[in-house]
C-alpha cells in the first residue's frame, strides 16, 4: 500500500481528517440528543399547558340579586356576576393593571380596585387609574334552569391585554 502523503501546510491526512470529522459529527449528534432530551424533560407536560373554556355553572340564579355583584370562580379565575335590569353580566375580578381583585361598590355602581385606585364602571370600562387603557375582561353570561352559566369570551377579545393577564385567563388562575 502506498503511504499517504501529508499535506505540508496542514499536516492533515485524509484519514485523519475523516476520523476527526466523524468524531465531531457523532459528538454533536450525541450532544443534540442528550440536550434535546434534557430540554424536553424540563418542558412542562401537556396537562400543565391545557387551555380552559366552555360554559360553566358558577352560581344559582337566586343568589344573584338585582344591583349586586356576587363573587364566584371560573376555572380558578375569580369572577363577579352582576345583575342589572334583570340581565346577568360577568366580569373577571382580576384587575388588568397588576392582578389585584376588584370588588363591586353598589352605591356608586362601579368596580374599585383596592391596590392602586383604578375604577371600572358597571360595563367594566376603565374610568380612571393606572389600569388604563385596559377594561375589566367581560365573560359571556346566561341563565339556564335557575343557574348562571359563564363562558370565556372569544380569544380575539383577549388580544389587547398584557401577556400575564392573557395567560391567567387562558390557562386558569
Amino acid at each position: 500500500m502506498e503511504k499517504e502523503e501529508l499535506d505540508p501546510e496542514t499536516k492533515y491526512t485524509r484519514r485523519r481528517f475523516f476520523v476527526l470529522g466523524a468524531m465531531a459529527a457523532s459528538g454533536a449528534a450525541l450532544a443534540g440528543i442528550v440536550g434535546g432530551g434534557l430540554l424536553a424533560y424540563f418542558f412542562p407536560p401537556k396537562r400543565f399547558r391545557k387551555k380552559i373554556g366552555g360554559w360553566q355553572k358558577v352560581k344559582p340564579a337566586g343568589e344573584c340579586p338585582e344591583g349586586q355583584a356576587v363573587a364566584s370562580v371560573y376555572f380558578g379565575i375569580p369572577i363577579l356576576v352582576l345583575r342589572e335590569g334583570g340581565k346577568v353580566k360577568a366580569f373577571s375580578a382580576v384587575c388588568p393593571h397588576l392582578g389585584c381583585i376588584v370588588k363591586w361598590d353598589a352605591e356608586r355602581k362601579n368596580f374599585p380596585c383596592p391596590c392602586h385606585d383604578s375604577f371600572f364602571n358597571a360595563q367594566g370600562l376603565v374610568q380612571k387609574g393606572p389600569a388604563r387603557p385596559y377594561n375589566l375582561m367581560p365573560f359571556e353570561a346566561k341563565e339556564e334552569e335557575g343557574m348562571v352559566l359563564v363562558s370565556l369570551p372569544a380569544p380575539e377579545k383577549l388580544k389587547a391585554y398584557p401577556s400575564w393577564f392573557r395567560f391567567a385567563m387562558q390557562y386558569g388562575g
Binding site: 412542562p44 395567560f167 386558569g172 388562575g173
Partner: peptide
C-alpha cells in the same frame, strides 16, 4: 412564553 414554561412550569403560577 418559553421562559415562563421553563421557569414556572406553566403559564400561570401554580403548584408547578
Amino acid at each position: 412564553w418559553i421562559i415562563l414554561l421553563f421557569v414556572q412550569g406553566g403559564y400561570v403560577i401554580k403548584q408547578a
